[in-house]
Amino acid sequence: MFKVITFITVLTLISGCGTSINADKYQTITPTFDPYIFFNGKVKAWGIVQNRSGDLVQRFTVDIDGSIDSSNVLTLDETFHYEVGEGVAHRVWKISSEGNNKLQGSAGDILGLAEGNLYGNAMRWQYTMDLPVDDTSYKVEFDDWIWSFNDSTIVNRSYIKKFGLTMAEVTIFMQQIPLESVTVK
């Protein structure tokens, strides 16, 4: 009985160690974040992944080509380049508006559907992924928070969780590439 009580106590304490962000406080902050506006075109991203100890395990850039089709589906074609560590090289997101500031999305390496909510200048994006690490993969939950920094820049903080514990954190800065900077071939 003592072991059961100890186990429940430890689980309760651990579950309190998670990240809890109050989305409501971002409702009135500007500029408002609209993924359909921000990602409609070319975007450059720079990011890092830190493990639980805070050590840098990945440093990468991402080239994102966004477009909206006639069905109002936002497609994000992402190409990753790693300077430190390894990871996915390519991902294509298909994102649709579900009304009421809600979004749904899918990508080839995402399990099930991703779900998102817009809160003024912030967006919460949650999904499950089989994350490859070395010779194995782990089923983890991603809890992404995106904030509009200004009209052309956003900051994304991702918390990668397993059993409710944050195992790693991702920080990504994304910036729209002005149309005049895009070379036509």
Rank of each mutant, 00 (worst) to 15 (best):
V4F: 07
I5A: 08
T12N: 13
G16K: 14
G18R: 09
T19A: 02
N22C: 00
N22I: 07
D24A: 10
K25W: 04
T30F: 10
D34G: 00
F39M: 03
G41C: 08
A45C: 08
I48P: 00
Q50P: 03
Q50Y: 11
N51K: 07
G54D: 08
R59N: 10
R59W: 05
V62P: 00
V62T: 06
D63I: 01
D65A: 11
S67V: 04
N72P: 01
V73I: 10
L76P: 08
L76V: 09
E78Y: 02
F80M: 09
V84S: 01
V84K: 08
V88Q: 13
W93N: 08
W93A: 11
K94W: 00
E98V: 07
G99W: 08
Q104N: 04
A107W: 09
L113M: 10
G116K: 00
Y119G: 00
Y119L: 06
Y119R: 07
G120K: 07
A122N: 07
R124M: 12
R124V: 13
Q126N: 15
Y127G: 03
Y127H: 07
Y127V: 07
T128W: 15
D130M: 06
V133N: 06
S137W: 14
K139R: 15
V140I: 15
V140E: 00
F142C: 00
D143T: 11
W147L: 14
S148T: 04
S152R: 12
R157I: 11
Y159V: 09
K161I: 01
K161E: 00
F163K: 14
L165T: 13
M167L: 14
F173S: 14
F173V: 15
M174Y: 06
Q176A: 03
S181Y: 11
